[in-house]
């Protein structure tokens, strides 16, 4: 049996190949591959090992946030605060580790203390979001909108308290390795992401909590009457999203070697866009880690190809938007196809 995703019901006779393709859960992956193949003629550099590694390390932090977001989307929530968690965690973590009068500098444990600071920021904001949504019945969109506004402001303010510069640098070398280091030619961050993605996948598909997430997303009232602790389930989804954003912040901060308050400012719509392109529903009850990975891969490959083509920012924006739209239209059409059978 499959997990609690919306299984594609097939009651009718075998479908023509194009319909099967359209309904396949690998559609986004296939589109990515096709796009990549076409791009190989336009910008041959895209197929080099260096570019591919670049794509890989560029998608890692994005992927971790998107995985956290997937949990929240499955319970029909949304977490707009993820980017501000990244920013806040980045500057707080950096302020703990930095060689320029960091709180834990010289203790020998600065990297561990720093990473704990990252995770603490992520989980505290996640806890706050979750509490507001489940205890005070506030709409997730607004709760996380206000935490987003608050913490993106707070991150900048926090930085000004610590330094005259616009970011907090001089981070320990061993920390930077997490974001930049390579093992056997592959990014070290890949290992982190694999652990997170693997854990997330198992939670969603194999555990009681995973099944509860889908149930709450599909029908919270029925879930409550069936003995699902609905509030707890939603609460933990927000905490997971916060922690994932914090892990992503570790990777980003390591890559950039500085704690930056504007980190992740522009990725909010990319994160949600990637999840939705992958097939995660904004209305809850539908989503898989694999789909999110495909969505992130799709967006990252497009970003990289546009960058390689040397297009001006204007075209990058317009093309990216059009591709998101095209993907959404295809998705809408396949829904129509599903419904009409």
């Amino acid at each position: 049996m499959t997990s609690a995703d919306a299984t594609i019901a097939s009651k009718a006779r075998p479908l023509p190949a194009w319909k099967r393709l359209l309904l396949s859960e690998y559609l986004v992956l296939i589109l990515t591959v096709v796009y990549f193949a076409v791009m190989m003629f336009v910008v041959p550099e895209i197929a080099t090992a260096d570019t591919l590694l670049d794509v890989l390390s560029a998608m890692m932090p994005l992927l971790v946030v998107a995985i956290g977001q997937t949990f929240v989307l499955i319970v029909a929530g949304i977490d707009l605060s993820a980017p501000s968690i990244i920013a806040m965690a980045s500057v707080v973590g950096a302020s703990v580790m930095t060689g320029d009068a960091g709180y834990a500098n010289g203790s020998g444990l600065e990297v561990i203390a720093g990473i704990l600071a990252f995770l603490a920021v992520g989980s505290v904001i996640g806890l706050f979001n979750g509490t507001c949504v489940t205890r005070f019945n506030m709409p997730p969109f607004i709760v996380t909108l206000t935490t987003m506004m608050f913490f993106s402001g707070a991150a900048i303010w926090y930085t000004t308290v610590h330094t005259d510069a616009s970011s907090i640098g001089n981070l320990p070398r061993s920390f930077i390795e997490i974001g930049q280091g390579r093992v056997a030619g592959l990014p070290l961050s890949l290992a982190v992401v694999l652990v997170v993605a693997g854990a997330a996948h198992f939670i969603l598909s194999r555990t009681v909590y995973g099944r509860w997430l889908y149930a709450v997303g599909l029908n919270p009232k029925a879930a409550a009457v069936s003995g699902v602790p609905v509030r707890k389930v939603i609460f933990w989804a927000f905490v997971i999203s916060g922690v994932c954003a914090a892990i992503s912040s570790v990777l980003y901060t390591g890559r950039l070697e500085t704690g930056t308050p504007v980190l992740g400012q522009r990725i909010l719509l990319d994160v949600i866009g990637a999840a939705v392109i992958g097939g995660v529903s904004l209305f809850g009850g539908k989503g898989k880690i694999l789909w999110t990975i495909f969505g992130v891969l799709f967006l990252t490959v497009i970003d990289k190809s546009l960058q390689l083509m040397g297009l001006p920012i204007a075209s990058v924006f317009a093309i990216k938007g059009s591709i998101i739209l095209a993907a959404a239209i295809i998705d809408a059409q396949r829904h129509r196809l599903l419904v009409s059978r």
């Binding site: 719509l269 939705v276 924006f317 317009a318 998101i324 739209l325 959404a328 809408a332």
Partner: peptide, 14 residues
């Protein structure tokens, strides 16, 4: 019949 959130997200970029 594209969801409003996604439609307007895309036209934001475009």
């Amino acid at each position: 019949r594209v969801a409003a959130f996604i439609t307007t997200l895309a036209t934001l970029f475009i």
